[in-house]
Design a protein around this nucleic acid. Structure first.
Lengths: 255, 255
DNA sequence: CGGAATCTTGAAGTCAATCAATCTACGTGG
DNA sequence: CCACGTAGATTGATTGACTTCAAGATTCCG
């Protein structure tokens, strides 16, 4: 990465009020904008709270918007005509969702109570074309999403059910405590219902449930209830994902 | 899309000689460059022929390049430490491959004799930062690849073996005769071996072979040999992909 | 022509799906 | 407050699709 270019030379002006104390100000896509552009963006942006299990927007709702995820978790999914469904991505805060390139029609559903900061597509594209730094940031974001989609492709295509579940849980751990060093037990609230988990992992509800029970019985994780998980050994969980060369850690299951 | 902006006002100058008669000149990513920039790009570009089944480059070969596919077919794949492999994308001519955003280390292998036009990553990024139109084109490309990866995620995660094979064959048909209207039998040379097809579809060689035989026995396609296919009914093939609402076409199999 | 890959085909085995209860959590209203 | 109803989750029994194992058949190339 290079030092910021001088193209948006308008770092002047006050921070627009809606953006003051925005939870995503530091890591979101808007961080590359000067206060001036940020102000223009803030003028057309709308904050919205989407309750758990409600659609953020419908698969093909015309014009479309681009939004930043402020909090919560959102699933992007696609269905076959006979109803089979696959979640193709989970989005966590600071991610951008909506009609950015690709334009594939994806069902976008809040899996937790979710707050977004939404901008009409046209406005976003205007600001985009004026801010090369923003364009590079968009490329970085889409690239990261492509990378992730391909990683899941490997998981869904080649991993066993147990490995997929472990991979999902391990991803939650990684997302939770960013790049922090591992250590003691972590408590994590699973954002997805068993059904959504199944749709994400290309499995059935029953299989997901069974594999979670196995992970629990083998002492890798524990559950207070269906959504409250304790990770007892991050190492063994990672070993169960199939992503690491096995060091013959006893108890690592692959079925 | 908007009419070309006046930013690269240097459409002047002669077409650089290597680009004269380039098979990708019209549809490749370079089409958005003026002759001036194109000339600079041509100076640092290298054409290369990669024989079937050879690596275009290795998973992590340092600096990296960005290349346009001139002809042939390339697979991008990722492996688990125990050797299980998944092809995460097939790339056809006009596509860009290499270290563009995402940066995930992917094994890149020619599945047919393949010609590429390659540029060192640094040079490409320089030209990229000078040409907003090129940046927008890159966003478009990555977005399309994201879209495709997600489509395959649905296929691998939720479709039966028979549907996956049909989807693959149908994709080849679609790629072959661009958006042309369907009609009589088409002959298509399968670019992937059975093994590579299995790695692409998340199946085994045997299952791929069996499903192809079933497709043949049901009269949807025919094979002269393992790689020379005749599509007898594009409609029934499409029906077999699972992507279309079924109109109760007799003979459409889903097992 | 011969030998090695690659592909096809068959038989047996296994993992995950399906079918079917049961259990738990939660919200509503009596 | 507890009975009741519903939705989600777990658990068990069985089925079935795909894999694995094992021969053959075919193609490719020296």
């Amino acid at each position: 990465m290079q030092p910021a270019l001088k193209l948006s030379l308008d770092r002047s002006g006050p921070i627009p009020s809606p953006c003051l104390g925005c939870p995503v100000r530091r890591d979101g896509i808007c961080r590359v904008l000067g206060n001036d552009e940020l102000g223009r963006l803030a003028l057309v942006s709308v904050r919205r709270v989407v309750p758990r299990h409600e659609a953020v927007w419908r698969a093909g709702d015309g014009s479309g918007s681009v939004a930043s995820l402020l909090s919560g978790v959102v699933s992007l999914s696609r269905s076959l005509p006979d109803g089979r469904q696959q979640i193709v991505a989970l989005q966590f805060p600071t991610s951008v969702i909506g009609s950015l390139a690709g334009g594939r029609e994806l069902e976008t559903v809040a899996q937790e109570t979710t707050r977004i900061c939404s901008v009409p597509r046209g406005h976003f594209e205007n600001i985009l074309s004026r801010n090369p730094e923003l364009e590079r940031e968009v490329i970085r974001q889409i690239g990261a999403q492509l990378d992730e989609a391909r990683n899941w492709l490997v998981a869904i295509g080649r991993k066993s059910a147990a490995e997929r579940v472990a991979t999902y849980l391990h991803m939650l751990v990684t997302n939770h405590r960013s790049p922090q060093r591992d250590a003691g037990p972590v408590e994590i609230l699973l954002p997805l219902s068993r059904g959504a988990t199944a749709d994400f992992l290309g499995l059935t509800i029953e299989t997901v449930s069974r594999k979670m029970t196995e992970l629990k019985r083998s002492g890798i994780v524990d559950f207070d209830d269906a959504t409250r998980m304790h990770v007892l050994s991050t190492d063994r969980l990672r070993a169960a994902t199939g992503d690491e060369p096995v060091l013959d850690q006893p108890g690592s299951l692959r079925n």
